[in-house]
């Protein structure tokens, strides 16, 4: 009897392990979103105190995350857009399907590539910076000093990074779409003979589909919230020592990467399943 129980336990071990892993991630996600909620709530409660200090911090974050992130997004969007346009034009022309080039590019760039690549760049540039900065602030006693001055760290430290992050990731993603579709065409103009009027007509027509923008906006907002809540969370996990900072930063980056990529894939799969089922029903 005992040995059969032991065998069952052994057989169920992978299931147990999977369950534990899933629950660990669920609890972590709850903590990340709790941090987001607390920072938004703190600003709501302190709205009489919503001073220029907080606004100044938000603008500073927009500058660091958004403005300083523009050159790399510009270069990446041009290269990605050019590659996608070149491939689309050469392959679709082979099978005579150049009418759907616009739709293909918009589907690829708007729904998939722009939100994901922008998020990856922001993780590399800004999630590392936020986790390191907050970790150092904890180790230096700056967070405690803010509390001692009656300044809520959720509203003064976390909120500006979240809001600045959402605005910046949104702006950078739009920027990516624009330069991938326009700049990419200009770069590849010498390599193909597509009439620009035709190209921009089909692209604009495809851009008019609202469901693509819904997925784009959903991904942009969730990516930004995840990146900056995760980076802030791990930064604030540092206790008293500077040697904890690189560990916190690495954890933040790895967690951001895995959650952002998983979410982008998951959101696309669910989106298309729902879209296909609606089309079938119609």
């Amino acid at each position: 009897m005992a040995s059969s129980r032991s065998n069952i336990a052994k057989c169920l071990y992978p299931v147990d392990l999977l369950g534990q892993t899933v629950m660990r991630h669920v609890y972590l996600l709850i903590e990340f979103f709790e941090l987001t909620f607390l920072s938004l709530r703190s600003v709501w409660y302190e709205r009489p105190n919503y001073s220029r200090s907080i606004l100044g911090e938000v603008l500073q974050q927009i500058y660091f995350i958004g403005w300083l992130g523009m050159p790399i997004i510009f270069a990446l969007s041009l290269v990605t857009g050019a590659a996608a346009i070149l491939q689309a034009v050469s392959q679709f022309n082979l099978v005579g399907g150049h009418e759907i080039i616009g739709q293909f590019l918009v589907l690829t760039i708007v729904r998939e590539v722009a939100p994901l690549l922008t998020a990856l760049i922001v993780i590399a540039r800004s999630a590392t910076a936020v986790a390191t900065e907050l970790g150092n602030m904890r180790a230096n006693g700056e967070i405690e000093a803010l509390q001692a001055m009656g300044i809520n760290p959720y509203s003064f430290v976390v909120y500006p990074r979240l809001v600045g992050g959402i605005i910046s990731v949104g702006a950078l993603s739009f920027y990516f779409v624009f330069f991938a579709l326009v700049g990419g065409y200009i770069i590849t103009a010498f390599a193909h003979e597509m009439d620009p009027r035709f190209y921009f007509a089909v692209v604009l027509e495809a851009l008019g589909e609202p469901e693509g923008w819904f997925l784009f906006i959903l991904k942009v907002i969730v990516n930004a919230v995840m990146i900056f809540s995760i980076a802030s969370y791990y930064g604030l996990q540092v206790r008293r020592s500077h040697h904890e900072v690189p560990v916190a930063t690495t954890k933040a980056v790895m967690r951001c990467l895995s959650y952002v990529v998983s979410f982008n894939i998951g959101a696309s799969v669910i989106f298309y399943l729902v879209l296909f089922s609606i089309r079938d029903a119609l």
Binding site: N49, S51, R52, S53, I54, E133, N136, M137, N140, G141, E142, E144, A145, L146, A148, M149, G150, I151, F156
Partner: peptide, 23 residues
């Protein structure tokens, strides 16, 4: 504080002005 606590991204003036401006 015994160990620092000055906000490292702000100058001495900004550190002193911060609580007054925030509140």
């Amino acid at each position: 504080f015994e160990h620092g606590g000055l906000i490292s991204s702000k100058s001495v003036y900004e550190n002193l002005a911060l609580p007054l401006l925030y509140h």
